[in-house]
């Protein structure tokens, strides 16, 4: 018989790194919530102009600011923690040398910057004024 120590369900409240681990995992709720909003926006778009306008009008509601603020903080925490572990998941070699962690993480941050710039340009910079 092996002895299994019982871990209380509040283990994650006992140390800061454990707590931050759970926060990191729960950023996924904000991720899914926002994708749910994008899905709703696409549903409204498929229903036509009045439905879509009603959906985008929600963005000026005070609750939208609150949810977007909390969501953005959590999603930024996701992005930073995600890129910071990339060197541990992706190990590349150049000849005999291992590519340094800072280069792999740095490439992801550069990709993030490029993606953000592209999305911003597509949505903010390529329209025709009405």
């Amino acid at each position: 018989m092996s002895y299994i120590r019982k871990v209380p369900n509040t283990w994650w409240l006992q140390r800061k790194p454990y707590f931050l681990f759970i926060v990191r995992e729960l950023t996924s709720v904000a991720v899914a919530g926002y994708c749910g909003f994008l899905l709703y926006l696409m549903y409204a778009l498929s229903k036509g102009r009045p439905a879509y306008s009603a959906a985008t009008d929600l963005l000026t509601h005070p609750a939208s600011y609150t949810l977007h603020t909390i969501g953005l903080l959590l999603v930024l925490y996701h992005t930073i923690t995600w890129f910071n572990v990339t060197p541990k998941v992706l190990v590349f070699h150049l000849g005999e040398e291992k590519v340094p962690a800072v280069v792999i993480a740095g490439a992801h941050y550069a990709g993030w910057l490029a993606t953000s710039a592209l999305v911003a340009w597509l949505l903010l910079g390529t329209g025709t004024s009405v």
Binding site: L38, V75, T79, W82, G111, W112, T115, S116
Partner: peptide, 8 residues
């Protein structure tokens, strides 16, 4: 999510 959601 890491790449696209913050800017959106």
């Amino acid at each position: 999510a890491a790449l696209f959601l913050p800017i959106l």
